[in-house]
Nucleic acid binder design. Structure first.
Lengths: 243, 243
DNA sequence: CGCCGATTTGACTCAGATCAAGGTTTGTGG
DNA sequence: CCACAAACCTTGATCTGAGTCAAATCGGCG
């Protein structure tokens, strides 16, 4: 089975030093020496299949994580059972910081497709941070960015119309594609409409209708999960980034 | 003017070691030696008056902050001008972590009333973390908690009805009052209705109507900003914390 | 006391939810 | 390779929670 083989190759490959995601990931801003040290403690567990959980709400936090390939969603659960997706994590992005609070995760992490991650074990993190100033600095940066991302989503959920939310989502996707040296104008969404809707705090039907409306307006082209952005400026104007 | 005098006394007082907020604040879990070291680098700038900004969106991040007295709100701004309040910070609570991301704050911090803060300068934080393992651990805890708090608010904004939002807000206030050894059942809100509404992602009128409705139902008693909780369990049931 | 901002209350409206139904894609076992 | 079930997605019709608009009323302060 060719899928399985590809995953196994993924699994075996590259140190941080050779990883082409290194500037987006833990290693950002570190020198070669620091990279070797970092590499020594990073685990590469076996890949996740679609819908596999990496951790559950309530699990002991043992590591923080970076996406190597695929896409991971994280979601919180409310006491009365509904869920809010708080992030879609693309290759090079870090997650699992919620576990730092009380030593237990307070959200779930699930693979949206076949995905692999790198683990930085928490028990080694403390001493490593003492030895590698670069890592300590990077840890602060990572956390700060997480907070900024959360604030951006709070603004979206608290103040934006459904239309603005979807525009904002598409722009965010596009930007992150570009950072990974893929096309900013054409990409595949890895998540179902339901997940987009949940993330944006609207109903699935609303997402579906808005995709149709954007397509009518020649802002984007939609073919199931394949998105082509035809009028980036129009999207930016929708969220106030341009006038 | 007696107000001014009280503020000045506030300003001069107590090292971390003597501060009765220490278990909620930076010092949590540190030993006496660590406390002395911590104390040496903590600044106590002059107090803020109501509506003073501690920092603005875009300011260089020079420190992280703890509330000593009063109440500080933090809010993000969208490109098109509207604001989302992302936190109300009570004595002993920490804020300003958004500045760690890119070295610049991405939100505003404003005093809701006369307030004083402690500052932990970022340039001293790095070396201090290397020397004090307790502080490094606490930093991670603080950040984790911030992420958890943000996720809780995301769930509120994404999935809850207006009624559930207000119930959740009142319970959160009550809990934090209790942590500070004040009454969990009777307290003053420091923020105007407008700020509560903004924070909860609803209109002011909705907040006003819900306060009236809760009062009618004998769940709380409202007298302008003075709140008495009469039926805590009812509030908990509303947010699914009890059944 | 008089003013201005904060809060409340009522009447009306609407963006987006819900309900319902049909179409399409994906995966699976025979 | 096909048949069939299960997800997933779209579209239309209707409903409603909360927003908006407008108008008192309250409350604190100079």
């Amino acid at each position: 089975m060719s899928t399985l083989k590809r995953i196994d190759i993924d699994h075996l490959k590259v140190s941080c030093k050779q990883c082409n995601l290194r500037e987006l990931c833990f290693p950002h801003g570190m020198n070669d020496d620091e990279l070797v040290n970092l590499d020594a403690v990073v685990d590469r567990p076996k890949p996740l299949r679609k819908n596999d959980y990496l951790y559950h709400d309530g699990d002991k936090a043992v590591a923080m994580y970076a996406v190597r390939s695929g896409c991971i969603k994280t979601m919180t659960e409310s006491p009365n059972g509904d869920e809010q997706i708080v992030g879609f994590h693309m290759p090079g992005e870090l997650f699992g910081l919620d576990g730092f609070g009380e030593g237990e995760h307070t959200c779930n992490a699930v693979a949206l497709e076949s995905s692999s991650v790198c683990e930085l074990p928490l028990d080694k993190l403390e001493s490593l941070c003492r030895e590698l100033p670069g890592l300590q600095r990077q840890m602060r940066r990572i956390m700060g960015k997480e907070v900024i991302a959360d604030h951006k989503l709070l603004l979206l959920l608290g103040k934006m119309t459904a239309e603005e939310r979807l525009a904002s989502f598409l722009l965010s996707m596009s930007k992150r594609m570009q950072e990974r040296h893929w096309s900013a104008h054409e990409f595949n969404l890895t998540m179902p409409r339901q997940d987009i809707a949940n993330y944006l705090g609207v109903a699935v039907e609303t997402v579906s209708r808005l995709f149709a409306a954007f397509q009518n307006e020649k802002i984007i082209e939609v073919e199931s999960r394949h998105i082509t952005i035809l009028d980036m400026d129009r999207l930016k104007r929708m969220v106030g980034e341009l006038d």
